[in-house]
Design a binder for these strands. Structure first.
Length: 669
DNA sequence: AGGACTGTAAACATAC
DNA sequence: AGTATGTTTACAGTCC
């Protein structure tokens, strides 16, 4: 109830400080304004953060962060150069920009300094990004190495000094000091491992499994300081120092993958990478020790295999058993450029998420501290994938909290009944439904995120239901299948079932766009796309509201910018469709994807109600597959023989077909 | 201020 | 009787 209002009130302030956005913000749509502020202030916020870090006493984490900011900065500059050569960055004429460049207008309208990584990724070509990335990674590696070298030297020096001094000291004191130094060394080493792991994830460092795991497994024991530089330098791998591996295309998957999972280091959300060790056809399954949530770890399982389908980003190929899956893995996801790129992207995703998680956790703690919440309260974010914090369901009046399984603790402080906390209804505004965040692309890009994170998706029930239906080849689902889609796609909908199921049913009945069709097996639900689009405002360009919404949507996307940036390349089948990836298509004026693009493109009367339907939306052709006549044929849908053959039953979601068929070069204004 | 939209809750009906 | 499904109404919150 008032939880979200509270979170929003609280959130609006810090969201401007963190350009990456707030994970907690995605739960409700009313973050439009706040989101825009966050985006606008993002560049400054990041820059100041980086600037504050660069005071000489930079920690490794800071250094890493700083390097990432540098990378972003370079990318921005690159983008700026590119944009300035084509159109003025300050030019807000969207059509001009969009026609001149194949750059999404909403992005083109923004200053590059405001761009989030995923926006830049959308703009820059993969080779450009690759080059930038590698350049920055190499730089980062060098600096990290220097940093660690210095640290090691310092420590070593101190140790020597202490040892010498210790000769004149009682043994006890010397022992204590040595102990302290050992602890310090241990910390250093752990730190190094962490960064080594990070770098490995980025493909910067490659170590042979034995060589890498050797020193690391001896971690808890006393270590010789001289081992550390060796480890760091990659001397464990003779003839292949780390710098070399940087130069080699940056990713050595065989070594990286194996060692990466052998680390016991940072828990959180790193997905296993062991699958890359299988290109040779070896059915060896490396089950990582961690990766708790979503993957079974039974011996007969594979982290990339679950629920009978391949979990490779954007794949979801059905495999009957593990053997078939392994086969599929080795054929479809062998060690090639594409897989490499996808893996690298995934590495960055994980890394960004970890960074983001740390930030958000810190922020949450600060918020809670500020609100005088019990500091001893168990932190929900201690769990890897339950990132959501602010998005809490109305606390448990109708829907009993799913006991301890519910990882989200409502943020509402018991004593806070202030004016900022509305005691009223539970309504949330889903900003993205209308303009800014097309569900299919948004969902596509954050597919894995919503699957695992207990975050309420920022979409309306109607749009979610529609998406569920449209994702099926037949474009029809039973209610139960819709339920299943919800629970499958969103961790959030794995609890409070009574509430959202009721809402689903309510929406199905309420909206005319959902058509119930009697089938032999029962009833299925289909989408009347035309009715759905009728709900949409007919005009979408030019208004400041639109810009705001778009920006907010983009800002929202920045919540998990890494995800978007990463998955945009490869993750979701939708995105691989030509209509999705071509910003220069008819949708270029609004980079909102087909979900929303379809709306204005629809040849609707401007008032949306005057004339009878002339064109049968292509969706109806799918209803041909329904065995019986619609129970309620109130609208007398003609299957539209003019539209000809039933849509090719493509396996993927068919929204790109919408785009093609419903948008014959339609202008949007 | 008011309408549209949305989410939530609930009552009720129907079918299995 | 219980459950799933479907319809409808009511109300509150948000946005325009």
């Amino acid at each position: 109830m008032m939880v979200e209002s509270a979170s929003e009130t609280i959130r609006s302030a810090p969201s401007g400080q963190n350009g990456v956005g707030s994970l907690s913000g995605q739960a409700d749509g009313s973050g439009g304004g706040a989101g825009a502020a966050g985006t606008a202030g993002g560049g400054a916020g990041r820059d100041t953060a980086a600037g504050a870090d660069s005071n000489g006493e930079m920690s490794p984490a800071d250094l890493l962060h700083f390097q990432q900011q540098q990378a972003l900065q370079v990318a921005r500059q690159f983008l700026l150069q590119q944009a300035s050569g084509l159109s003025s960055p300050g030019n807000n004429d969207s059509k001009q920009s969009a026609s001149a460049v194949q750059v999404p207008v909403s992005v083109a309208m923004m200053s590059p300094q405001m761009l989030t990584p995923q926006q830049m990724q959308q703009i820059l070509s993969p080779p450009q990004l690759q080059a930038l990335l590698q350049q920055q990674q190499a730089l980062m590696l060098q600096q990290l190495q220097e940093y660690y070298k210095k640290q090691q030297e310092q420590l070593h020096l101190q140790l020597l000094t202490q040892q010498q001094a210790g000769k004149q000291q009682p043994k006890e004191a010397l022992g204590n000091k040595q102990l302290a130094f050992q602890q310090q060394l241990l910390q250093m080493q752990q730190l190094q491992q962490q960064h080594l792991l990070n770098l490995q994830r980025q493909g910067l460092v490659s170590l042979q499994p034995s060589q890498a795991s050797g020193p690391l497994q001896t971690l808890p024991q006393a270590v010789c300081p001289t081992d550390l530089p060796q480890l760091w330098k990659g001397e464990g791998a003779p003839g292949q120092p780390a710098e070399d591996s940087v130069k080699q295309e940056g990713l050595d998957l065989t070594g990286t993958a194996t060692t990466a999972t052998s680390f016991a280091a940072p828990p959180k959300v790193s997905p296993p990478l062991s699958h890359h060790t299988l290109p040779n056809g070896q059915p060896t399954v490396l089950t990582p020790r961690r990766d708790s949530s979503s993957h079974e770890e039974t011996p007969g399982s594979h982290p990339l295999y679950g629920h009978g389908e391949c979990k490779w980003p954007g794949c979801e190929t059905l495999c009957e058993d593990l053997g078939q899956f392994i086969k599929h893995l080795n054929t479809e996801h062998a060690l090639d450029d594409r897989s490499t790129a996808q893996c690298r992207v995934q590495m960055q995703v994980v890394q960004q998420l970890e960074i983001q998680l740390a930030k958000e956790s810190e922020r949450l703690q600060a918020m809670m501290a500020h609100l005088h919440m019990r500091p001893s309260e168990p932190k929900p974010f201690s769990q890897p994938v339950t990132i959501s914090a602010a998005d809490s369901f109305p606390d448990g009046l109708v829907h009993p909290p799913t006991s301890a399984a519910a990882p989200v603790t409502p943020l509402r402080p018991p004593g806070l009944g202030s004016a900022s906390l509305h005691s009223g209804g539970p309504a949330r505004r889903r900003s993205s439904d209308k303009f800014c965040s097309p569900i299919s692309s948004e969902l596509a890009q954050n597919h894995e995120f919503y699957k695992n994170a207990d975050v309420r998706p920022p979409f309306t029930y109607a749009s979610l239901i529609r998406q569920a239906i449209l994702e099926t080849p037949d474009r029809q689902l039973t209610l139960n299948e819709i339920y299943n889609w919800f629970t499958r796609m969103f961790a959030y909908f794995r609890r409070n079932t009574a509430t959202w199921k009721n809402a689903v049913r309510h929406n199905l009945s309420l909206h005319k766009c959902f058509v119930r069709v009697e089938n032999v097996k029962g009833a299925v639900w289909t989408v009347d796309e035309r009715e759905y689009q009728k709900r949409r405002p007919p005009k979408m360009t030019g208004s400041p509201t639109l810009v705001k919404n778009m920006i907010s949507g983009l800002s929202y996307g920045a919540l998990n910018a890494s995800y978007q940036a990463a998955l945009a390349e490869s993750s979701f089948p939708l995105l691989n469709s030509p209509g999705m990836l071509n910003p220069g298509s008819a949708s270029s004026l609004l980079p909102l994807s087909h979900d929303d693009v379809g709306a204005p493109g629809e040849p609707l009367p401007s008032n949306g109600s005057s004339s009878p339907p002339r064109l049968s939306p292509p969706q109806y052709s799918h209803q041909v597959q329904v065995k019986e006549e619609p129970a309620e044929a109130e609208e007398d849908r003609r299957p539209g023989p003019a539209l000809g053959p039933p849509n090719p039953s493509t396996t993927g979601p068919a929204e790109d077909r919408d785009l093609e068929e419903e948008l014959p070069g339609e202008e949007l204004s």
